[in-house]
């Protein structure tokens, strides 16, 4: 997940720089629009299936656009208390740095999840890496969670706020 947005930002900043150097604004805009058409997904945050990363058994129920969790109303949100009960007992090494570990994924109409993509950042919102075993532990725990709302495919993300050697919050 993190590679793609960086690319978009890079394009944006580069174009801004070009136009401020006195290039013909309209021409530059047209050029950028064409390249952006190729680079942007249909919607920010879309996750294309990747056979090298994804479980081949995971299928969405519908073929059309997958909505974001928040577009489906509050009933499609899992309460933080439920998430904290599930993830709060994850044991992390004492020296785990502070930061946020986010996993974005698709929940299908049967309440199963797939297409997991991740992003890690420190408390200054800069990219960082947590230990692989830590991330694997959280991902395994996520795959075992079985209380997702059913009935629709939708995009969801979970952000784990990590501080003091533990998961202190599960967001959103």
């Amino acid at each position: 997940m993190s590679r793609f947005p960086r690319l978009i930002l890079c394009i944006t900043l580069t174009v801004g720089l070009l136009s401020s150097c006195g290039k013909d604004g309209k021409e530059a805009a047209h050029k950028t629009a064409k390249s952006a058409m190729a680079e942007y997904p249909d919607h920010v945050g879309d996750i294309a299936p990747d056979p090298e990363l994804d479980n081949p058994d995971f299928k969405t129920c519908s073929k059309g656009k997958i909505p974001q969790y928040y577009a489906l109303g509050a009933d499609y949100r899992v309460a933080n208390k439920v998430l904290m009960d599930h993830f709060g007992t994850v044991t992390l090494p004492d020296n785990t740095p502070k930061g946020y570990y986010t996993i974005r994924f698709v929940v299908n109409c049967e309440g199963r999840i797939g297409r997991l993509r991740e992003q890690s950042m420190n408390t200054d919102y800069q990219e960082m890496e947590f230990r692989k075993d830590l991330k694997a532990t959280i991902r395994t725990r996520l795959l075992a969670f079985d209380q997702w709302p059913q009935g629709r495919d939708f995009y969801q993300y979970l952000t784990f706020k990590i501080e003091g050697g533990k998961i202190s919050e599960v967001l959103p």
Binding site: G16, S19, A28
Partner: peptide
């Protein structure tokens, strides 16, 4: 591109990244 100092466009472009969990962007 047209007006790099136009705060509204930066703000609005940012919003979907916030709502979809890409907090770095």
């Amino acid at each position: 591109e047209l007006c790099e100092d136009f705060a509204y466009a930066w703000h609005e472009k940012a919003v979907p990244y916030l709502k979809r969990g890409d907090f770095i962007t």
